[in-house]
């Protein structure tokens, strides 16, 4: 696109962001402040992820963008178009074909590889924010690794409900040191972060923080020995591809309680459907 630099941001800004990313990779799970820029998309719609993606994209990259697991949700379309327009790079909806995957609220079902990077959009990077409003105080809690308060919250959950009731944005310990918000992915996705082969980058635009999980790093959900972390998934199989191992969206079919459960990861679902058709054709 004329009048703009490759991938929108000027090179100085990209260097600033890359420095923040390097620091973030060096201190897994630690929130690194960065001079976040206003982007032509609104705050809260992925500006942090977009800045991180813009800073790491090269001309040979292939970009996939998902929102809620799907490539065709409007915000995913909008961001994918933004980079197609400002960077002129190739885009894809196939997880396996992408070198960079920007995501909001999901991790693809297909395991990621060492030559891929996943960029998470983060609305609220501070996992302690709901328990302690002051960022000056939470900063100190991170510095001293004082995370007892987070366990108090989990204790209260069990005392009240009999189990931990956090179903998404489940707090995790990264590399045994920093408490981290995994962004609002469902708890179902949290185990995928543990020792993932791909580099995981997190961008929070409004709050101007970047953090990272290097490949093969330990990521442990907070829990109790006698109330271990457990994930939540609708018990059904996908109504389109029959998957029982994927995270499902619930689709309201009518006003009489009709429901259909389908994979939230549209690429995964489509892949399984076409495999089925091939098998049917072969049979």
């Amino acid at each position: 696109m004329s009048g703009y630099n490759f991938a929108y941001l000027d090179e100085q800004t990209k260097r600033m962001i890359r420095r923040a990313i390097l620091k973030a990779v060096a201190i897994p799970g630690h929130q690194v402040p960065f001079g976040g820029r206003e982007m032509p998309l609104p705050y809260g719609w992925g500006t942090g992820g977009i800045q991180v993606t813009a800073a790491i994209l090269g001309p040979s990259d292939v970009l996939k963008v998902i929102d809620q697991g799907a490539d065709d949700t409007t915000n995913a379309v909008s961001i994918r178009r933004f980079f197609a327009r400002t960077a002129g790079i190739e885009t894809t909806t196939h997880t396996a074909d992408a070198s960079v995957i920007q995501t909001r609220h999901r991790i693809p079902e297909t395991p990621l590889r060492a030559d891929q990077i996943i960029v998470y959009q983060v609305p609220l990077p501070e996992p302690l924010a709901k328990l302690e409003q002051s960022r000056a105080e939470t900063r100190q809690m991170h510095a001293l690794a004082e995370y007892g308060l987070m366990h108090v919250k989990l204790y209260e959950d069990i005392a009240r409900y009999g189990h931990i009731s956090i179903s998404y944005d489940y707090p995790v310990m990264v590399n045994g040191r920093y408490l981290m918000s995994p962004s609002p992915i469902p708890a179902f996705d949290t185990p995928k972060m543990h020792r993932m082969a791909a580099l995981q980058l997190f961008g929070a635009g409004r709050e101007k923080r970047i953090y990272a999980i290097p490949p093969h790093t330990d990521v442990k959900p907070l829990d109790f020995d006698d109330h271990p972390f457990r994930l939540t998934r609708a018990p059904q199989a996908c109504g389109l591809c029959g998957a029982r191992d994927s995270y499902l969206d619930e689709v309201v079919m009518d006003d009489r309680g009709g429901r259909l459960f389908v994979c939230s990861d549209t690429d995964y679902c489509a892949g399984r459907q076409s495999m089925r058709q091939d098998e049917d054709a072969a049979a």
């Binding site: 609104p42 609220h105 409900y161 944005d169 939230s264």
Partner: peptide
């Protein structure tokens, strides 16, 4: 207000996935 309007209005974006987790949790409870 640029930050504020963005974050307030982002509630219009889909939240199917988080809401689905909440549905499962509340059903169980």
């Amino acid at each position: 207000n640029i930050e504020a309007t963005g974050f307030v209005e982002h509630l219009k974006l889909p939240h199917y996935v988080d809401f689905q987790s909440e549905l499962e949790t509340i059903r169980r409870m």
